[in-house]
Design a protein around this nucleic acid. Structure first.
Lengths: 233, 233
DNA sequence: TGTCAATCGGTTAACGATAATCGCTTATTG
DNA sequence: CAATAAGCGATTATCGTTAACCGATTGACA
């Protein structure tokens, strides 16, 4: 009973299938931010009804990947500078606390999983695969969020961050230097997690995020919401 | 141009109308937590198509008021003890930071608005109107969130808290003592906001929330995620 | 020639009907 | 008699079509 011979069939509903397809198209850049997505056209291309497409778009809207305007249409989300700063600020609040909790509950197995994810990032970077390295990067952070044991917290961080990955990384030049930095910048987090000290983890996450998003944060008038943890003004 | 003579007509899409109707029914208790909501039945009662009802239910699912299971049906969300604890923990993280930012940007106008909201709460309590006092309570907190100037933060707090109000207050006895407490427990927040000191505001919010939700928090094994701010273990 | 209303093209919103899926009950069969 | 399959009722998922809506453009009229 413990291990079935067959995997449960995947695919879910047709709407989810469509949603996945569009999501992949957005990530891979086939749909550009700001570009309109027409329900009927998509329905024809994918051989499904408009209703199904609509349900998929509703899901994507929830995930923050598209925006829908009544009677006007759907377009790929194009995060404004302000949107990005806001998301980063909130992510900073949540992820530092999540990681601090994660380190408290850390098991050797979980630490091993994080090290594996780290290897995945490095591997993708070695292959110079930008898309996959971003996926691995996200997976690493997800593993940290999950470790907090708070599903609500995980869900919110996911909702907040997925569009960030989709649209921020899109702008960053994917040159070799940036990719190398992607590996290095995660190492202090892992080190802090190994140390088991919550304060160190908070600092590591804070440093990682502010560094990673430096180019989006500089020029922010109110840095307050961006660094609520240290520097208690 | 600045002030129109007429308000923009409300009502939005039919789907939103249905969604509002169901939301009100949930809040008022006409739909109980755990109760099934049948699409076709609702469609007949409201004289709209099943598609429209479905869109409404999708909206409500996003808001966390109902849960939908593929091919099984929709039911009113019944938050588990764990869900509630998780939401409180995350709300604590976000609202303390939001309020700290709000106090930094506070204007006399905004402070006046909060005082007005406070009067609304007191007024509803005097009328012994439980439902309205809960609405006013929520409005007070919303005003604080909005003051942070971070729309993303506002949205997340809303998403997180609305179901809390819907289902937590439902369980609390709405006796006179509880209602009086509802007024009193907000006063320290207002006082802290007037003082202008971020640290005081953080403490006030923390105190308010842990007090308000005491009955749901006691017995929590890991209080860590619930008090990430003070008492740095 | 400027203003406003009617029209038009394109798109989403809503509809009614059918198909697919689920859990449960009832047969069937070895 | 137990295990399994077939059938049933209820419900959601999907479909194709029609209605409503928005913004831009055209055209009439002062």
């Amino acid at each position: 009973m413990a291990d079935a011979r067959l995997e449960p069939i995947q695919g879910g509903s047709r709407g989810t299938l469509v949603s996945d397809a569009v999501r992949a198209a957005i990530y891979s850049g086939r749909f550009q931010p700001g570009e309109a997505i027409r329900e009927m056209q998509l329905a024809r291309e994918l051989r499904v009804s408009q209703t199904t497409v609509r349900e998929a778009l509703l899901q994507l809207e929830h995930a923050g990947l598209v925006v829908r305007e009544a009677n006007r249409g759907t377009r790929v989300t194009s995060l404004s500078e302000q949107d990005i700063r806001e998301r980063i600020a909130v992510r900073l609040m949540l992820e530092t606390s999540a990681a601090a909790e994660t380190v408290r509950r850390m098991t050797p197995e979980h630490l091993a999983e994080l090290e594996t994810q780290m290897h995945e990032i490095a591997s993708a970077v070695r292959r110079n695969s930008y898309y996959e390295s971003a996926q691995a990067d996200l997976a690493f952070h997800r593993a940290i969020w999950r470790g907090s044991g708070n599903q609500t917290l995980f869900r919110l961080l996911d909702e907040l961050t997925v569009p960030l990955f989709a649209f921020v990384s899109m702008r960053q030049s994917s040159n070799v230097t940036d990719l190398r930095r992607r590996v290095r910048s995660h190492e202090p987090i892992l080190a802090a997690l190994r140390s088991g000290q919550a304060a160190a983890v908070r600092k590591a996450i804070h440093g990682h995020l502010t560094t990673s998003y430096r180019q989006f944060l500089e020029g922010t008038v109110d840095a307050a919401l961006v660094s609520p943890d240290p520097g208690k003004s």
